[in-house]
């Protein structure tokens, strides 16, 4: 199995797997075993994808969602980094407040949505708030952990050269924390997307989440598949790009 050219073998196997899945899908679509259009034929999905590509509405909603995710990442991320630096820098504060963040981190944030609607309205405000709330937690935790894991020797080296606080920050702390920060950004992006999109599916009149619900209520299955495919592809693409930027291993979770 290892003989020959493994890269070629992997490529061929991937093609074979994809081909098999597509064939099975098409067979299932044509068999009529399932309720009509639950598994639409590939041609229909391709058509819907093409349709999306030329639909100005799609681009408007994509821009809307992207803006919401971007703003929420900026807000939630910067608050998260600030909180992380504070918690990572002070043992007392870390011990006092980090457990709360640690245990609130993996709770379902979407149930705060009714509160966010009340605070920020049903427009983009509440979606941004959901995204920011979601990404605050992983960013804060990873930043705090990253701050603590800096090799103490590096800090002593900086001190021994009498680096000023600003120099310490830019020449020691920041470079030493670049991986945790990027990793925080990556995870934060992932949960911000979920926060924003789920909020959009619950209550909104724009965005990709809204479009998904629209195709659901119109029972436009090919349209829904096309939308989900595009959303997943974009999310995976951004995630992989951040990983590549930071030289992170994309398989690391």
């Amino acid at each position: 199995m290892t003989s020959g050219c493994p890269a070629l073998g992997v490529g061929l196997l991937r093609l074979a797997i994809l081909g098999t899945i597509l064939l099975l899908w098409e067979a299932l679509a044509r068999s009529g075993l399932l309720f009509r259009d639950v598994v639409p034929s590939l041609a229909k999905i391709a058509l819907a994808l093409g349709h999306l590509g030329t639909d100005p509405d799609f681009y408007r909603n994509l821009r809307g969602t992207a803006a919401e995710v971007g703003v929420s990442l900026a807000i939630g991320g910067s608050i998260g980094v600030a909180a992380g630096l504070l918690l990572g820098g002070s043992r007392l504060l870390g011990k006092a407040f980090e457990p709360y963040i640690h245990y609130l981190g993996p709770t379902p944030k979407i149930i705060f949505f009714p509160v966010m609607i009340m605070w920020f309205g049903i427009g983009p405000g509440s979606k941004i708030a959901m995204g920011a709330l979601s990404c605050f937690f992983p960013v804060a935790l990873i930043t705090a952990a990253g701050m603590r894991q800096i090799d103490e020797v590096l800090i002593r080296v900086g001190r021994s050269f009498r680096a000023r606080p600003w120099q310490m920050a830019t020449k020691i702390y920041f470079p030493a924390m670049r991986y945790p920060l990027l990793n925080g950004l990556r995870l934060g992006f992932g949960v911000a997307v979920i926060g924003v999109l789920l909020a959009e599916t619950k209550m909104s009149n724009q965005g990709l989440g809204f479009m998904v619900m629209q195709s659901y209520s119109q029972f436009d299955m090919p349209g829904m598949y096309a939308l989900l495919l595009v959303v997943f592809a974009l999310a995976i693409l951004v995630n992989a790009t951040i990983s590549r930027l930071g030289g992170l291993d994309s398989t690391q979770h």
């Binding site: 199995m1 992997v10 196997l13 979920i194 999109l197 789920l198 659901y216 997943f232």
Partner: peptide, 25 residues
Amino acid sequence: RLLRRACESWVAGLAAAPLVLLYPL
């Protein structure tokens, strides 16, 4: 092993995708 090399990055990709969004489907 070959299957792993072919699929592991796919699974990692799925882990990064907002799978909850499948709920309307």
